[in-house]
C-alpha cells in the first residue's frame, strides 16, 4: 500500500463518501465541536495521513497507520480527504 503507486484527485470530499477499500489523503478536519480535531489529530488523522475505508455501516470504520478507527457518521463527514485512485 505504498503511496507511489497511487495518484489522487484534487477535489476534497468527506471521508464518509469513500467507497469500501478506497484510499484517501486527509486534507483537513472541519466541524464545530471543539476538541474534535484535537482528538482526531492525536489519533493520527492529520493532513497528509493516508486513510483506507473499511466499513460504512453500522458505523464508519477506517484504517490509518496500522490502526482501525471507528467513528460515527458526523465525524466521518467532517474529515475531508482527497480520494486516491489505484493506478495499478
Amino acid at each position: 500500500m505504498s503511496c507511489t503507486l497511487l495518484t489522487f484527485t484534487s477535489k476534497a470530499v468527506p471521508l464518509s463518501s469513500l467507497a469500501v477499500g478506497q484510499h484517501g489523503l486527509v486534507s483537513s478536519v472541519s466541524g464545530a465541536p471543539t476538541g474534535r480535531s484535537d482528538r482526531l489529530v492525536s489519533l493520527g488523522i492529520t493532513p497528509g495521513a493516508v486513510v483506507t475505508m473499511l466499513q460504512r455501516f453500522p458505523g464508519v470504520v477506517f484504517f490509518c497507520d496500522q490502526t482501525e478507527l471507528a467513528v460515527e457518521r458526523a465525524v466521518a463527514d467532517a474529515i475531508l480527504v482527497r480520494p486516491m485512485e489505484d493506478v495499478r
Partner: peptide, 10 residues
Amino acid sequence: RSEFIMELPP
C-alpha cells in the same frame, strides 16, 4: 455527549 471516535485494538 462526546462524539464516537474509538480505536479498535487488533
